[in-house]
Design a protein around this nucleic acid. Structure first.
Lengths: 218, 218
DNA sequence: ACAAAAGTGTTACATCTACACCCATGG
DNA sequence: CCATGGGTGTAGATGTAACACTTTTGT
């Protein structure tokens, strides 16, 4: 029995939700897209293995965004080479200024979710589960901030919700909801910036782990 | 590397939340309580392995209640015998009329959560995660009905919430909330029964998978 | 009749939606 | 000045909490 970890790495680039995929260089599924992942080392915790893969693939620290176990997949036929059970992890990351530098997977690239790439193994199912988890968690946790840089405007936070949920939200009501939710975000007090229009306040992540009241998906 | 499944089986008996535990007959942790579980067979899906264990331990069909994957635990030192990774499953079951008949674990018994038994391995952590998952899911899914028999009264459903959440709920408001939530429960139309007081309408599970509006934990 | 549990009505308050409106900046 | 986006005010709909009150049984 072989144990691996696979990563569903989500970020928002160019206003669309993207996932990090790698092109497989060897059979099976040679040449197809797949989720990044790798073997769990002897005497390595599962979370450590996933964090190690994350660093290898993106050069990014897990603490920069959000990182959690998603689910485990072990259907007997899921890998034609034999019994491989994989523990999937989900990470929500800000748009990386230093992108896939230091990656050991040369073929890794951010692909829009909307592209609908065919994926190797049961990775389409894992990705779908990760997306649904992310969409659900935006409702009742402050995880949307994981997609944002350390300081962000409320409009930027709103585009996170709009992108992940594929909806439009009323800017006025959204503003009041997020500023009203306890410890969701805190004003940096610091200045304000933006290209056109009135400058916006900057905020950072608050201390809340649960949103109250929640932001319900329309 | 060894792969096992462990089960967090929850039910409500005698008005308290209980978990099925087994006394370990062999080292390590001989004589201590542990979650029921066992090895995943070669070419057996994880869910099948967990369902098989459930039937072996309780003689109950997974479809009688609710059954889902909880999380996977693989810290290197969690089993002193070597590397053992376990996939934990959570099941919510009605109070079983035919109890642990046919069980291959003679030492299996329902133990109150409140008893605070010391558990072998990292099973205390797994149980805590299962409890928190169950508590959270009662809020926004109709899973409370998994603890109920096929036909139940609203008061019985309310005691499920009160028991799992360790709170008291207003019977009048609770009644309106659950009858108002779309497709949560359907009246059997059928009669009404109970020991003292006015007879109650009987209900069965509805078709909803998500509760709207949700029942928020006080 | 009375206790006990089921179920309805009412009122005050919180939250949501939709939208009118004002504020601050770049060109 | 005016277009653009940031941010506040307000009214109606919906949901919530607290609790008085009516209904239907067993004893």
């Amino acid at each position: 029995m072989t144990l691996t970890v696979d990563l569903v790495l989500l970020t928002i680039r160019n206003g669309e939700l993207q996932v990090l995929l790698v092109r497989r260089g060897i059979p099976p599924f040679e040449g197809e897209w797949a989720l990044p992942g790798g073997f769990v080392l002897e005497s390595e915790d599962l979370t450590d293995a996933a964090a190690r893969e994350l660093r290898e693939e993106t050069g990014v620290d897990p603490a920069a965004g959000h990182f959690e176990q998603l689910a485990t997949y072990g259907a007997p036929g899921r890998d034609p080479r034999g019994r491989v059970v994989t523990v999937a992890y989900l990470a929500l990351l800000p748009d990386l200024p230093a992108p896939v530098a230091g990656s050991d997977a040369a073929g890794a690239s951010w692909r829009p979710i909307a592209a609908g790439d065919r994926l190797a193994f049961d990775h389409a199912r894992i990705l779908a589960d990760g997306l649904e988890r992310a969409r659900a968690k935006l409702e009742y946790t402050p995880l949307a901030t994981a997609f944002c840089p350390p300081a962000f405007t409320i409009a930027e936070l709103r585009t996170v919700y709009e992108t992940v949920w594929r909806t439009k939200l009323d800017p006025r009501n959204f503003h009041r909801k997020v500023t009203g939710a306890e410890n969701f975000i805190e004003p940096t007090g610091e200045s304000a910036i933006r290209d056109r229009g009135r400058p916006a306040q900057l905020y950072r992540r608050g201390t809340a782990t649960l949103l109250h009241p929640a932001l319900l998906r329309p």
